[in-house]
Amino acid sequence: MSTDERRGSGEERDAGPGTRERIVVATSRLMQRQGYSGTGVKQIAAEAAATPGSVYHFFPGGKKELAVAAIRHGEREFADELDRCLTAAGDPAEGIVACVRALAEGMRDSGWEDGCPVASTALGVTGGVPEIRRAADAAFAHWRRLVFERLRDHGIAEDDAADLAYTVISTVEGAEMAAQVARDGAPLRIAGVHLARLIGLYASGPRA
């Protein structure tokens, strides 16, 4: 069935307000648990309480377009959590510790099924898909920018803050994967402690 036929079919009856968001959330949830290759459009539709016709109505590009939307959704979710932790703590070292603690708690509550939706989706694409790679790269860059801005505002020199932001996000991503494999929050807690110490070393030096 062509895209136009799907759009005009009765499969699109449930394409009302909120359906697109349900589809994106379902895609993000499934891909972070199963990866890109292990997730199909029919399963996404079922998880979203939608129909395949609705999925193709909102995402005529199919699974690739869904994956990009899921990555952007995951980007916003973690950016909001990261910003919340950094804002509440004031001190970026304390904010990172709070953030990794929240990540560990969320993963434990999911039965260690929920990892990073960005990494899980992007790394699960065999051979790489440019649109998905670019979306993932933009997500990591956004998170690094949030950390960089807090470090810079805390008085750390810009060059050091930029390098530290890379280190923070890369370390948290690796620790998140290790925690999921081990089904234990220790990798995240340990990463948080040492990242806080590293940030503290730079923050105690000469101000920018």
Rank of each mutant, 00 (worst) to 15 (best):
R197W: 13
A141D: 15
T121I: 09
S204N: 12
G106A: 05
A161V: 09
R20H: 09
L123I: 01
A203S: 14
A88P: 01
E158Y: 07
D80Q: 13
A67V: 08
G90M: 08
F140I: 12
E12H: 05
Q34I: 01
T87F: 04
E158S: 14
A45K: 04
D83A: 13
E12S: 10
G10R: 07
G111H: 06
Y202C: 03
C85S: 13
H57A: 06
V100M: 01
E149Q: 12
E12P: 00
E113P: 00
G53P: 10
E113V: 10
G185F: 00
T87Y: 04
H73R: 09
S120D: 10
A135S: 08
E176L: 13
T87W: 04
L66P: 09
A79S: 15
A182I: 01
G115W: 06
A135Q: 04
A157N: 08
E77F: 11
V118M: 07
Y202W: 14
A50D: 07
P92D: 03
A89E: 11
D83M: 04
V118P: 05
R76W: 07
E173L: 09
A122K: 10
I190D: 12
F59S: 01
D4A: 14
V100C: 01
P92F: 06
F148A: 08
R76G: 05
A162F: 14
P187M: 03
R76A: 15
R76H: 11
S110G: 05
L30P: 09
A141P: 02
A139T: 15
R150C: 05
A122S: 13
T126W: 12
H57G: 09
T87L: 08
P187Q: 02
A122W: 05
A175T: 01
A89V: 08
I44K: 03
S54A: 15
H73W: 13
C99L: 15
L188Y: 01
A69K: 04
K63F: 07
V147A: 12
V25L: 08
Q32Y: 12
A67R: 02
Y202S: 08
D109E: 15
A48R: 03
Q180S: 11
K42L: 10
